[in-house]
Design a protein around this nucleic acid. Structure first.
Lengths: 237, 237
DNA sequence: CGTTTTCTTGAAGGCCCTCAAGAGAGGTGG
DNA sequence: CCACCTCTCTTGAGGGCCTTCAAGAAAACG
């Protein structure tokens, strides 16, 4: 009884107080006591855009920024196989069968924990395990969505789908039918590597969407979705 | 102490005695007592090839057979996004964002449990949660591998990769360099739906591999991998 | 302001798709 | 057992979508 009260009454660590990760990230699984224990072992980092994230065995909450995950064929061909947006968490339990490289696309803020502490907590906090599983399954759904796009959509549909997906994660959540405007932290080449296309094809499809009034290209990197309805029509599913 | 002895001394249910799922499937997480409890609620089924697997909220160990997972675009275009081979388990915790259809490609044997029992056991058996997570992450690795194939490999490389992947799951584990022979439980159309190609292209690539001596097409459905080294060379990674 | 990188646009080519016809395998009933 | 049907697979010819190759424009950077 006293233990339970301790857990409830322990104060939320100051650093966690307004942290998005408590609402939608890893830390939603913990009570105040556990959060306090974890906060003692945690550390915040800033990462610059373009930095490779080493697989050094830590878990991190991604507080802000975007990460790309890439897989390479032996001759240099490259495929982006996923993205992480805040407040995802980064770091992989167990070892992967294949090497996947993670790189910061924007400047990022991380809150990191030693792996051992989190792994141990999965024994004590079933909710944590469920959360990790739910995340993994969501990533699996996303990967399979993009399998369908890579295998069966046209270049035009791929680009439209990509813009809508990215806007959903990056853009400020406007009224659904309204226009959304956001910075694309990807080069045309990276978009091509995600969609299984070439730079030139991506560029041509952007131009076509601009001419047709579906998007405005404010800047090479800044896109405004002028007609979301039109994009949804073109996205093939 | 008595409780622990109970758990150790409880007998393995007869039906589980030689079950592959205990070694490599879901049931490796349980001790004898837990296995006995679970066995009471389990039921075995036989499923015929071609049957759709309803998402009825049960978990199952796939004891034998192959399952395909498909995702459809609105206009009928189809993409196979994954397979299940014995001794995988079937059934998904939490709900999926997108509908994915599961269909038996061969006759199958299942050992099924009510979802509630397994979900409850995840609270008591941390190893079960770890196992579910490990499985999900392996499926994620596979999906990302195929994203790279769909986006960046040529038709020829896709077919070679597919044959090697399938042989690894289906074929009797021969000496690595030896020839492997197995039944392909897929039509050319299904292979095409997995590789993002057309039936005709898949057929042409099979013919080319046969002419080049990499495979022998014993029967439309029965393939013999004559030169695994040659297939690996053609597989692009 | 010059250099470098990224992006855009055009022209031509190739890989895979579409369309088409025939071959092969399996099943059924006579 | 064979005729007949159906379904799948194979193979060829032609076309289209995307790529490749190329050159110039627009940013980004020092």
């Amino acid at each position: 009884m006293a233990g339970i009260q301790d857990a409830q009454q322990a104060e939320v660590p100051a650093i966690c107080n307004s942290c998005e990760a408590r609402r939608a990230g890893l830390c939603g699984a913990f009570n105040n006591r556990q959060l306090a224990d974890l906060a003692k072992a945690s550390s915040r980092h800033e990462i610059l855009a373009g930095t490779d994230l080493p697989d050094d065995g830590t878990y991190s909450n991604l507080l802000s920024g975007v990460v790309k995950l890439t897989r390479n064929l032996s001759d240099g061909r490259q495929q982006i196989v996923g993205f992480h947006f805040a407040p995802d968490f980064l770091g992989r339990p167990f070892e992967a069968k294949r090497p996947i490289k993670a790189e910061a696309l924007t400047n990022m803020a991380l809150c990191s924990f030693p792996r051992a502490i989190v792994d141990q907590m999965t024994n004590e906090v079933p909710e944590l395990g469920r959360l990790l599983l739910r995340r993994a399954l969501n990533e699996l759904d996303d990967a399979r969505d993009w399998m369908a796009a890579l295998g069966r959509k046209t270049a035009s549909e791929k680009v439209a789908s990509f813009l809508l997906m990215f806007a959903g994660h990056i853009g400020p959540s406007r009224h659904p039918a309204d226009s959304i405007s956001f910075d694309l932290p990807l080069t045309r080449g990276e978009i091509a590597d995600f969609l299984g296309l070439t730079i030139e094809t991506v560029s041509r499809e952007f131009s076509r969407l601009r001419v047709d009034g579906a998007i405005r290209i404010v800047n090479k990197r800044h896109i405004s979705l002028a007609s979301i309805a039109q994009l949804e029509e073109r996205c093939g599913d």
